[in-house]
Design a protein around this nucleic acid. Structure first.
Lengths: 338, 338
DNA sequence: TCAAGGCGCTAATACGAATTATCAAAGGGG
DNA sequence: CCCCTTTGATAATTCGTATTAGCGCCTTGA
């Protein structure tokens, strides 16, 4: 069961009594100045090609133009499994669609070792160079690693804004979306708002906090999510919570209800994006939070676009912020008159 | 920001003050008789490779025909998006896990053109040869395409049994699982059972029908899923429905209830696998169907295993059928005494 | 009759990595 | 001092395709 050698241009050339170069020229239909093939010769070659069903080996073709048409996808979490898959899935949908449109294949770096539940890009056996460039996905990215990649001239596009100057990215405009939400709340009469979330670490967190501070008059920032943290906020006169992570919002609503508070009548609770962590509890009695959603699919799509543009040598328009979609929801109301 | 040329072995060679050939030898860890590299030279080369993050170009490598440690994944439907993603997802989880364990990367053939909502493997610019071999995923596979791949000596492993003699696959034993279900029903007193599903086309459908026929005494086969089809079955004295697709089972239960029938008291309804089509309606009042589930993750896992074994030259054990897991459920009961 | 130029095609080379044959230098034995 | 062996590395070639320079032949014009 040895596999028959693939038919090559040399074979075609022999059968058509021409040179391999002529076959290539005919095949590529070259008619530039300086390249001429007699119609009868061309026909003879085409005839042999038809008879043999020859198709050019795409691999050898790529060797010549030095582009593999492979786009790498690096995720800091495993792609398919894991609790956060629902969050990352839409990004991948966008990436896949864009790759398909561009005629590129996607290489998932599954060979990357996982340390402490996270992947390291730059390990000794990294195979990044298999791809023409890579899309980077994940909330937390090691800034050093990213810098090193950029410094090495390895083409990347991050999904999500990155602080590093020179990194091409497609991010969501969390600052603007958060600020807009806060202004809505203020317009309804809320005077004391609180931001609940890390507010540091990932760019997506700092951006939200920044947007919050820009728009909120009396700006309170809490990081803990538990009953006593809520008590402290309430004691400070907070009437609206802006919660980074919906799972935390659900928990806070629970604590509020335990205290006999109604949402949103007594306390407004807004979310700042889609759930990264899965949400516990019965989906049936889940609140329809007021907040915004992240244009994840579009971000994936455009990240591939940005990557290919940087491969083409474009130097501008490689950092983009997309607007988030407001979600009306039912968890924002006028604060109770006190 | 010009496009940085890819690093080549020649570059490594220059930096390490050796020849390109030496770099190749070190890289492939060649120690055959006749090939010797001084430890210090080897170390010098490896050091440069580490510094530069060099990886052999998969394209050039394939030209001289060596392994890439890349496993191709070809799906007849788009991988990430679409209504059927929930069905395919577990297969991918298994594939990814196996790839990670083997230290291989996954190449998703997104470059494949989609025609009529389905992908074609063998188009003129197909890039299958980028991968060492490929896992094929999807209910319906073009038999001609698969035959051609096998004939060409391209290593593949299908997820799901394939009729073609020589195709390595990891399938689910639908026949046995279906037969076991039917025997349970018969033991409970059901005399007239019906199979509802295509029963033809994909191997997975013919297998289920075969298992059904083997075990059912009075074998009725229906393909339509609507109210009048149900009436016809009931008129024929059917007391248990074996439905290939859970979404159809849900619909049939709906029709039965409209007729005042209770499930399972008046009619048992069993399912033959996990939902390929998404199920409409409120998840809250969804029935817990008796039936079986498909070991999807395990199938994906073993498909990669089978593929690598066939790459290693193994000629046996390349066709496997895995048992399906019975699901007790609540939709099977003794038939009403008439 | 001969230079100029058009035409049709081919030889040669590049692309990046793997492999084989070969070669230079060093060491050992007689 | 010569021959032979071992060691360590390299030049040259291969894979299949694309590209370019240029080679003969033929026509044309003066």
């Amino acid at each position: 069961m040895s596999n028959p050698r693939r038919i090559t241009q040399r074979d075609i050339a022999r059968l058509a009594r021409v040179s391999q170069a002529t076959v290539s020229l005919v095949l590529n239909n070259r008619t530039d100045a300086g390249v001429r093939i007699a119609p009868e010769t061309r026909e003879r070659v085409l005839e042999v090609i038809r008879e043999t069903g020859y198709v050019a080996d795409p691999i050898a073709r790529r060797l010549v133009d030095r582009r593999n048409r492979i786009i790498g996808v690096f995720t800091y979490e495993p792609v398919f499994p894991s609790a956060t898959r629902d969050f990352y899935h839409p990004f991948l949908v966008g990436i896949e669609e864009a790759a398909e449109r561009l005629g590129c294949d996607l290489l998932l770096f599954t060979s990357t070792p996982v340390v402490d539940g996270r992947r390291r890009i730059l390990h000794e056996e990294n195979r990044l160079r298999l791809a023409d460039g890579s899309v980077l996905l994940g909330r937390h990215m090691d800034a050093d690693e990213v810098s090193k990649l950029v410094a090495d001239g390895y083409p990347i596009a991050a999904v999500g804004r990155r602080d590093h100057d020179a990194v091409p990215y497609v991010g969501a405009d969390y600052a603007a979306a958060t600020a807009a939400l806060v202004r809505n709340a203020v317009a309804l009469g809320h005077r004391t708002c609180a931001y609940v979330g890390p507010g540091a670490g990932a760019e997506s967190s700092t951006d939200r906090l920044r947007g919050f501070r820009d728009a909120a008059g009396d700006a309170i920032h809490a990081t803990d999510v538990n009953a006593s943290a809520l008590d402290a906020l309430l004691a400070a006169g907070v009437t609206a919570l802006f919660v980074e992570e919906p799972a935390d919002a659900v928990a806070l609503v629970g604590f509020a209800r335990e205290r006999g508070l109604r949402v949103p009548a007594d306390l407004s609770v807004l979310t700042l994006g889609d759930p990264v962590r899965p949400i516990d509890g019965d989906p049936a009695d889940r609140l329809d939070f007021t907040g915004f959603s992240i244009p994840r699919r579009e971000m994936g799509w455009q990240a591939v676009e940005v990557l290919t543009e940087s491969l083409e040598g474009a130097a501008t328009g490689l950092q983009r912020l997309l607007a988030c979609e407001p979600v009306a929801g039912t968890t924002l109301a006028r604060p109770a008159a006190h």
